[in-house]
Amino acid sequence: MTEPILRVRNLRATVAGQQVVEDVTFDVPATGVTAVLGRNGVGKTSTLKALLGLYDRTGEVTLAGERIDRLSTDRIVRRGVGYVPEDREVFAGLTVAENLRLAERDASPRRELVADLFPDLVKRSAQRAGTLSGGQQQMVSLARALLNDNRLLLVDEPTKGLAPKIVTEVATALAEAAASAPVLLVEQNLEVISRLATTVVVIDAGRVVHTGDAAELLDDPDRIQRLLGVHTSENAA
């Protein structure tokens, strides 16, 4: 086994005095896609935000051997962590080009790669991001993270609320991204998970209840039912 890229030990987070993550411990391997699974509201998004320092947190987080749990969000990101937030969070009043320009961190951002993955965005570069469709906004959000050479990508529900065709496009882009950097992915869509995920971390009530190989879990519908409270058949869409 190689060293994990991210080690999380006893991560806790609070928002306005409310505990939203209690004692989460897991590793993210240096390759592949690690999917964080769990029912709605168990703290998956909060875990990602806590890792990034967007929420007040305690515990130990190590990125490639370096402690990052005391660093501010911008420092963590500059250490090579790309973030694709839930609900995209594009800057609605800025154009597509401005959204992307803002995200350029490296001396030589990978503009060609982004242009290849999302040709639509090139066409719409002068359009305000707020007027884009949900799928296009998601592409802007993904593109912002893919512009830079990252050591780890944190991707939060990239397919939420998207049409099936767009879901496929997004998944393709993610697969492309995973080829160059490990991904920590929060996702509800089991089809996307089974296509991308190599490792799974299941969270319930703010704690990790299962970690392991993705294929192993996905082959066991009873276990999925028990851990996630879903039927696999329902999640085809």
Partner: peptide
């Protein structure tokens, strides 16, 4: 628009 997201872009 969104200060937190700006910091999340590094």
């Amino acid at each position: 628009e969104n200060r937190a997201m700006v910091t999340a872009l590094g």
